[in-house]
Design a protein around this nucleic acid. Structure first.
Lengths: 155, 155
DNA sequence: CATAGTTTTGAATCATTATACTATAGATTT
DNA sequence: AAATCTATAGTATAATGATTCAAAACTATG
């Protein structure tokens, strides 16, 4: 239950501007998840989400992400070297051009991303062990965005 | 006044782990700035600081876009993955958790450390060829320091 | 300098979030 | 199976943070 709920939370905060935990709770309820504010608070802590002061003067919850500088240089590396990204449960698989996996993996490691337990790189493949399905989904989503946008930010 | 105070706030949250606005307020007072929690709250909003759930279970204030320097992120990787370090003459042997050796080795390579001739990683073991006994000793010492100084934090 | 407008601030309060405590369900051991 | 442990989640409350409102401190302009 916890995993599904946290996964849904990630989905919700990506799709909506959510200002408070109560608001998030409402949306969770609307999706059929029953929980309390206390639980949401704990989920937020585990997911390492942050409440950021938005530009419009309001607050919203967002995923913690990599810094801008890093993401720019990493973006270049990723978009030139990565050929495919997929995942199954708590394992993300990144395919790269031959010989590039080590470099990409080091870059990925340097982001010290929450939810990532460990990585191992071969020659053209990286396995990323994550803490959960939702962590995998989040990572894949962010990486794809990084590659396509060449920029990543709080969303 | 506002500018100086906000500047000091940035300085304070970079140098300290500050968990609450009250705590920040105390430090501000100690620096000769008189303000109230309300003002601090507003400053935080303007500066777009975030309260992030830290890895140690505590919260802390941090800049929205955080750049962790290389040594910090490597420190994290090393401290989570490395289980033992030893050396004999010009060979350092690093034992890691299963599957982590490649990642650790890539991180180690990325430091381009002087005195290191080459590295090779298996599944849970890394061999580091160095130029001399003393190069080995230095590397081991530095790695151990990096690991013990495992405070991984946004700064 | 006087006045109007703007910005900043504090006090009090309201709103939000974190956590201590407890209960329960599932797993593990004896 | 009974006993013990572990993880999860709810309740109630404490802790923390945001905001309203009014006053003070600035700024600009005639």
């Amino acid at each position: 239950m916890k995993i599904e709920r946290q996964s849904k939370i990630l989905e919700l905060i990506k799709q909506n501007d959510i200002e408070t935990q109560s608001e998030l709770l409402e949306k969770l309820n609307a999706e059929g998840f029953s929980a309390t504010q206390a639980t949401v608070s704990r989920d937020i802590k585990e997911l390492r989400l942050v409440k950021i002061p938005g530009s419009n003067g309001a607050y919203k919850y967002a995923c913690e992400t990599v810094s801008e500088d890093e993401s720019q240089s990493n973006s270049y590396l990723f978009s030139t070297a990565v050929t495919n990204i997929d995942y199954a449960h708590a394992l993300v698989v990144i395919k790269t051009k031959v010989g590039m996996a080590q470099a990409v993996c080091a870059a990925l490691d340097s982001t010290n991303r929450a939810g990532v337990i460990g990585t191992i790189a071969g020659d053209d493949t990286i396995f990323v062990a994550t803490r959960s399905d939702s962590a995998s989904a989040g990572l894949v989503s962010d990486l794809k965005k990084l590659i396509s946008d060449k920029s990543i930010s709080f969303s």
